[in-house]
């Protein structure tokens, strides 16, 4: 017979079931949210973060999605991500091909951030690293066909540092030059003006997240020629330096 002291009373069973259901329900909520959050961590390659943004994995722990940076942007560059738009919902981003970053000297967006997701102490906008421009389409870039487009080079706010024109031989005509735009990742801010102004229907130069665009050499790699200069002498004594035989050095 079921009484109140009987451990198998319906009351007690209901309590245990209710507690279990609540715990499982809350756990499922947390798990679902966690999986969704984990998925939201991947930023689309064409979405760029504002200047001074922490690296993407730390950015999402700091950005409260208040939109104060978006409000501070005078050029309507920054947008807040809609649910399902790609970047984590509510986080600020911009697409270079739509409206690139104008690289304001006072960096109002970073100054507006209340949490430090954007570093307000970034100082010089030229040190911002929002991404890196990459010539993604050598087959369609007009300059690489031997034409003089030069638009990406001309609009670059860090002209001759972030993008340089390297003169090479035009192998198609045999007698002209190719002025190849070359991006220097150590000077490129990723503002996206080059991508925005590329005259092609689909830009031949695109700004990509640094993580995708820039490789990294392991710390144990040493460049012999640099180590030699640092040491001031041969690192391995006794190696015979044979003469370099170049065409113009005909005996």
């Amino acid at each position: 017979m079921a009484t109140d002291s009987d451990p198998k009373t319906p009351t007690r069973r209901r309590f245990v079931q209710g507690t279990l259901r609540t715990a499982v329900g809350a756990g499922a909520c947390g798990l679902g949210l966690g999986l969704f959050a984990a998925q939201s961590r991947s930023l689309p390659a064409d979405a760029l973060r504002p200047p001074g943004a922490l690296p993407e994995d730390r950015f999402l722990s700091a950005c409260v999605r208040c939109g104060l940076c978006v409000r501070a942007c005078p050029y309507d560059t920054l947008k807040l991500a809609d649910l399902g738009a790609g970047p984590a919902a509510g986080t600020p981003y911009y697409k270079a091909r739509n409206i690139p970053c104008e690289m304001c000297e006072d960096i109002p967006c970073a100054k507006a951030c209340p949490t430090g997701a954007l570093d307000k102490h970034i100082g010089d906008i030229a040190t911002a690293r929002m991404g890196v421009a990459v010539i993604v389409s050598r087959d369609t870039c007009l300059n690489l066909q031997g034409l003089r487009c030069d638009v990406c080079y001309r609009v670059c706010p860090v002209i001759d540092k972030a993008i340089t024109l390297e003169q090479t031989h035009n192998r198609r005509t045999g007698k002209h030059a190719v002025f190849e735009p070359v991006v220097r990742p150590d000077a490129c801010t990723g503002c996206g003006k080059c991508e925005k102004s590329c005259v092609l229907a689909e830009a031949a130069i695109k700004v990509l997240p640094i993580k995708i665009a820039v490789g990294h050499q392991d710390a144990h790699y040493r460049r012999g020629w640099e180590e030699k200069t640092k040491a001031g002498h041969e690192l391995v004594p006794g190696i015979i330096d044979l003469p370099d035989r170049l065409p113009e050095m005909k005996p």
Partner: peptide, 11 residues
């Protein structure tokens, strides 16, 4: 904590 994100702000 597990994802290192402000998770609730997604929804």
């Amino acid at each position: 904590a597990a994802t290192g994100t402000i998770a609730w702000e997604l929804i």
